[in-house]
Design a protein around this nucleic acid. Sequence first.
DNA 1: AAGACGGGGCG
DNA 2: CGCCCAGTCTT
Length: 364
Amino acid sequence: MAQEPAPIMAPATFQQRLLHWFDQYGRHDLPWQQPRTAYRVWVSEIMLQQTQVATVIGYFDHFMARFPSLEVLAKADQDEVLHLWTGLGYYARARNLHRAARIVVAQHDGEMPLESVEALTALPGIGRSTAGAIIAQSTGRRAVILDGNVKRSLSRLHAVEGWPGKPAVERRLWALADHYTPQRRVADYTQAMMDFGATLCRRSQPECGRCPFQQECLAYARHETHRFPVSKPKKALPVRQTLMLVLQDARGRIWLEQRPPAGLWGGLWSLPQFEEESQLWEWLAQHTTNPSLGSAEPMFTHTFSHFRLEITPRPAECDTLNEVREGGVWYDLERPPELGLAAPVKALLERQLPFSLNPLPGHA
DNA sequence: AAGACGGGGCG
DNA sequence: CGCCCAGTCTT
């Protein structure tokens, strides 16, 4: 953990090789590179924050056609700004951009405050890396960036241990980024680092065979390019438990109920669920005729993005329901209706169902 | 189906 | 410092 990877080469060597690579393989005709004004670079950097170049280009062109200058943007309605952002995601970026444009007009006489990283980061939506990119790209003054591409490249070259989201790791990466940043050709260097990470030292299947730093790269030497940057520790997912009633009628059909329209499995069809054994019993007693309950089947899990669901199937039988119930259906496995099923329910019905085709104990 | 991505905000 | 959030795209 407490590891301080020293730079693997002198800045001049790194810059020379990177810029040589950039001259041949870099991207030199991106829309925001011509003309390369602070406003255009700013808008492009905000759009690029969570979005790839290929996606951004179309949005950038439309945005510039409608809001060709900072003043026009500042005067626009937020609704219109958001409209042109539709599909890009992370709409707070658009709101911040719009708000910042108004601040620049009101407080900086309509000129982007390019004098320092601090002045830029004071604007909403502009962090340290974005500020560095704007200054380097639009003024050519030396400024350091550390976006995802740079983090990935530097993590690999130096085999930096620890997830870059950790402040200590991020500090180390900033130090490395600063170490390699040149005094001259900074705009090209900045673009080169982003292009290098995006096209050669990419997340999966990096092209190490064509890398100008293959000789020095510590991750490559260890055959561990896949391990860097170290990925975010996945938090232990909260666990919830549920009982799923697999109720068959006299004809062997399964009772399904439709979930509420919004939320988890919204609108899908699922088995009746219960937290407690007693609730399941109560449901059977209240709604079914001549019920009998089988023993619990082995629990299995279904993992969502934000929690893990432990499902215990409870097979049961009944003659019929003792009332007509809205939002439910007897599901005939022989001729399955075309319903949207929750994934684990589908798995249960397809794979695990044979268990409950056996006669249940206690039911003649 | 899961992970990546930059910045902001909170305790 | 640690943690959460927001949307789309990629793998």
